[in-house]
Design a binder for these strands. Sequence first.
DNA 1: ACATTAAGTGATT
DNA 2: AATCACTTAATGT
Length: 212
Amino acid sequence: MTTTEALQHHYGYLFEPELLEEIKKVGVLKKVQQGQTLMQIGETIKSMPLLLNGAVKVLREDEEGNELLLYFVEKGDTCAMTFSCCMGDKKSGIRAVAETDTELLMIPVGYLETWMGQYKTWQRFILDSYHARMMELMETIDTLAFLRMDERLLKHLQDKAKVTHDDVIYVTHQEIAYDLHTSRVVVSRLLKKIENEGKIALSRNQIKVLDL
DNA sequence: ACATTAAGTGATT
DNA sequence: AATCACTTAATGT
């Protein structure tokens, strides 16, 4: 799929032709491989990404390198957080890693504000995106606060399967432990339990999610 | 065959 | 749910 086609496909129904043209003109295509870091904590961002395909996971991280997964960003999405970051010239409070191979269109900061006034659809898009992100964050908080570890784990696997469009997930227990901020041993034990409940199938370096 | 890495388990806090 | 200590299994060289 060409960049133009992907743009048309995921954003065509949102934006008017003139805006699409502008995006095409000023957007810089960026391809990242799975596992690559897109944004590091403390960096200042100078463009806002529009996801064309693939998925990105957004993590919080403390000084000691402890991680906690916040949410996934999928194709057709943007992370509106970067919008506020760009405008205020603030430093990023999060780390973003490509969950799958991903293509993004990077829009330089300058255009963001101009388009806000110029295009109603752009304004809508940014606002909706903010809202969507906010809801996702609330859901994440709910999950953290009210769900037990085994439920969190299963939910994480289901989310992961969803964004990668594959019911088989290729990860180690250790990596999951990092995402959920727990220990490998706990992940192993709970996965075993969930497997016995017939919801997943385990093998080395991969987990098949049966209960979607 | 040997080393390395991933996963499983019992016991303790 | 976390941590330790140890075992077992899979994989790479």
